[in-house]
Design a protein around this nucleic acid. Structure first.
Length: 431
DNA sequence: TCTGGGGTCCTAGGACCC
DNA sequence: TCTGGGGTCCTAGGACCC
């Protein structure tokens, strides 16, 4: 850790739900839940109004519905979240060239690398409040919680302390005093399994953890995890802020409403997923040697199988063929709830043809038909446009009927209308 | 009808090579 | 005929993060 509190962590509050409330005035001040809306969906993010009812991230949508039936359940509009994220990350890069995004809604910023020299409490407070105000202004009112400390660990712990819309600065030298009374789960890397092992060893707080020897923790949790926790319990954290991290894998997976039993359908779905993975690889100029599939059985047992090719590929046909062959060795007779395809061992180049021929566009492989119920056409929250009514968003969809609320952040709350799902006047807005 | 999707990192065992 | 290490690559599974 550093002498100065020069690492900042920024976290956008209830990010997906806040973007929805920003764009859909009728949702402001109301419980909003973004996530899978189907029978097997889970909550990705929910507004603070929904949290008051006990709704949490990763909770099944079924349970969230039971706890908060009057909430708006939305499927999510990732292009809109991506755009808001780009705006915020751009602002952060004006502050310092060393910005490390952790996800769409979170990033570390190295303030020392940005030329800041006064790290007094007063200067940092002014700096951070200005940054938070600029984030809000640039995003149309999204709020961010910010933590500043002498390490990534402290900055992250700090940003969590006053959520939402908060700012916490942990001054140098005060780290351990802050950490000691906290539960071990504040330490990144301590999830439910590790917390339970520690609990059984009588370790509940960071102070408890601090009293154990490194050898003891290594014995209990393994070399890497054990010594890592020993250090973090003492607020020892030298991890640098890293701006550019290369992707190590690309994958696509899907959970299906009804368990799959038809092998031909599974193969068709894997083929489509392979095509999607290949498209993303190609788009980023990547290719990979290791092809993996993931299969979750009806009882939630999760299997993975992989093969490493002699040279990297980004070919949809090649990935699909390997994926189908890997599936062939698995017993799926009990039914499959999830299928996935991934490519890892990435290189930023594609193997040239062995004969030196210029890589030619491979013939478009005909994608197999999959039943329409496997494809979502309308989903709650989706941006749509009606030929006469204009812009709106899907309020509900099902049984061949789509209900649309005609409003945008600009137009304010508007009327609600229902249409047949195949109404030619209604179309999704692609952004 | 409990339990998403896209990632990262770690461990452990076996193959294979020197 | 038997016994050794170490290092690297690969595969499968699991914990964890947002």
């Amino acid at each position: 850790m550093r002498q100065d509190a020069s690492i900042l962590h920024l976290d956008l509050d209830a990010f997906y739900a806040s973007v929805e409330q920003r764009d859909k005035p009728s949702l402001r001040g109301k419980p909003v839940i973004v996530g899978g809306t189907g029978g097997r969906g889970v909550v990705a993010t929910c507004s603070y109004e929904a949290r008051a009812f006990g709704v949490r991230s990763a909770m099944s949508t079924r349970e969230a519905r039971a706890r908060c039936p009057h909430a708006a359940f939305l499927g999510g509009r990732f292009p809109a979240y991506g755009e808001a994220s780009r705006v915020v990350m751009g602002l952060l890069r004006e502050v310092s060239p060393l910005v490390e995004p952790l996800s769409l809604d979170e990033a570390f910023v190295d303030l020392a690398a940005g030329g800041l020299t006064d790290f007094s409490l007063e200067a940092l407070t002014e700096f951070a409040e200005d940054l938070r105000a600029r984030v809000s202004e640039a995003t149309g009112g999204l709020t961010a919680s910010v933590g500043i400390g002498t390490s990534k660990f402290m900055a992250k712990v700090a940003s969590d302390l006053q959520k939402p819309d908060g700012l916490v600065i942990v001054e140098p030298g005060r780290e351990q005093q802050l950490l000691r009374p906290m539960a071990v789960k504040v330490i990144p890397g301590v999830g439910p399994a590790t917390a339970e092992r520690l609990r059984r060893a009588g370790i509940h707080s960071v102070a408890d953890l601090e009293q154990r020897s490194e050898e003891e923790l290594v014995l209990e949790l393994g070399q890497s995890h054990g010594s890592g926790l020993w250090r973090l319990a003492r607020a020892l954290d030298d991890r640098p802020v890293v701006a550019e991290r290369e992707a190590k894998s690309v994958s696509v997976e899907g959970t299906y409403e009804d368990d799959l039993t038809d092998r031909r359908l599974m193969e068709a779905l894997l083929t489509r997923q392979a095509s999607s993975v290949a498209g993303r690889l190609t788009k980023h100029g990547l290719s990979g040697r290791t092809i993996s599939i993931k299969v979750r059985l009806h009882d939630f047992t999760t299997l993975s199988r992989s093969t490493t090719l002699p040279s990297p590929t980004d070919s949809a046909a090649a990935i699909a063929r390997v994926a189908r062959a890997l599936l062939a060795d698995l017993d799926t007779s009990g039914g499959v709830r999830l299928l996935g395809v991934g490519v890892s061992g990435l290189a930023d180049w594609v193997q040239d043809d062995l004969f030196g021929a210029v890589a030619e566009a491979e013939p478009e492989e005909e994608l197999p038909e999959v039943p329409s119920r496997m494809r979502a056409q309308w989903w709650p929250g989706q941006d749509v446009e009606h030929a006469e009514m204009g812009r709106g968003w899907v309020w509900g969809a099902g049984r061949g009927v789509v209900t649309v609320r005609f409003e945008t952040a600009e137009t304010g709350p508007g009327p609600v209308r229902s249409y047949p799902a195949d109404d030619p006047d209604l179309s999704p807005v692609v952004s």
